[in-house]
């Protein structure tokens, strides 16, 4: 009797397993694994004529991606993503610290305010930034107003269409991703530890270096990843804010598909970008693990 009921439940649970397992898995195979697999196949193919693609398992596209021209673009993407991450950290740390000191009822409002821009369309936020930064934009008008009142001659500053603009745009978009994890790390911090260190004669700097930072290090790492990874593969910000030579890797990939019509090479470049992203994540996980132990 008991075993019969047990078997029935077992069968039932197998049914539930299949019902919950099959649809998401089929979806992932159809729309994730299959497309990525095709990209992998394409990256080993060659363009024949104008539109035909021949699958002949050559490494040519990857060798071409190793050309100094493209290596430089990869390096530049890393450099810009790195600077963005660093700036986000420098800005986020005091901001996160400030939030922990805000009164409780204001805290929630500020956190929601920091989260909201994340949901507002990326394109719209970039466009809003353009309206502020362009030569006839609000920032330049403000400068002009000040200059005129001081009796100075005014030349509009060219904020847009250079690498600085890309960095400003990326910081603007990714800042909440750094503030929120650091805040989460600081919020649980035991204030008495700080007090104890101070009583034992540490300076503020020492307290932060030896007591606060080690505790929030995982949150800082998490924030850095949340900024660095999307910044590395960002397409829209460099496209709209960068200059003619301000191409990052994602823009070069787009060009292969929409303009140069060299799909195999574009596929190879995006595989390299995926490998690099996974590589960065792996390194991060390893470092995080080592620090923990």
């Amino acid at each position: 009797m008991l075993s019969g009921r047990f078997r029935a439940r077992n069968e039932n649970s197998r049914k539930v397993f299949l019902v919950t397992f099959l649809p998401p898995t089929i979806w992932l195979i159809l729309f994730l694994l299959a497309p990525v697999l095709i990209i992998v196949v394409y990256s080993f193919s060659q363009k024949v004529g104008l539109i035909n693609i021949e699958v002949n398992w050559v490494m040519d596209n990857y060798w071409r991606a190793a050309d100094p021209l493209y290596l430089k673009i990869f390096a530049k993407s890393f450099y810009i993503a790195g600077i963005t991450t660093f700036l986000c950290f420098i800005i986020s740390f005091p901001v996160a610290l400030a939030i922990t000191k805000v009164r409780q009822n204001w805290k929630l409002i500020i956190l929601v305010l920091l989260m909201l821009p994340f949901w507002i369309n990326l394109l719209i936020r970039t466009y809003a930034l353009i309206a502020v930064l362009r030569t006839r934009g609000f920032l330049n008008s403000g400068f002009e107003w000040i200059a005129v009142h001081l009796g100075l001659r005014f030349e509009p500053v060219q904020f847009l269409y250079n690498d600085t603009a890309i960095i400003i745009g990326l910081v603007y978009i990714h800042l909440p991703f750094m503030i929120l994890p650091i805040y989460a790390g600081l919020e649980g911090f035991d204030e008495t530890l700080k007090q104890a260190a101070k009583d034992l004669g540490s300076s503020s700097m020492q307290v932060y270096r030896h007591i606060v930072f080690p505790v929030i290090r995982p949150s800082v790492f998490a924030g850095c990843m949340l900024v660095f990874i999307p910044a590395l593969g960002s397409y829209l910000t460099p496209e709209l804010l960068g200059g003619t030579d301000g191409q990052l890797i994602a823009n070069v990939i787009e060009r292969q598909f929409k303009h140069a019509n060299d799909w195999p090479f574009g596929a190879a470049l995006s595989m390299v970008l995926i490998y690099l992203t996974c590589g960065v994540i792996t390194v991060w996980l390893l470092v995080a693990k080592r620090k923990k132990s």
Partner: peptide, 19 residues
């Protein structure tokens, strides 16, 4: 399951284009 969230958007985009 998290791959579509982690991999750069542009790679997902072109994967669909090619697919």
């Amino acid at each position: 399951i998290m791959i579509p969230v982690i991999v750069p958007e542009i790679c997902i985009g072109i994967a669909f284009l090619v697919f």
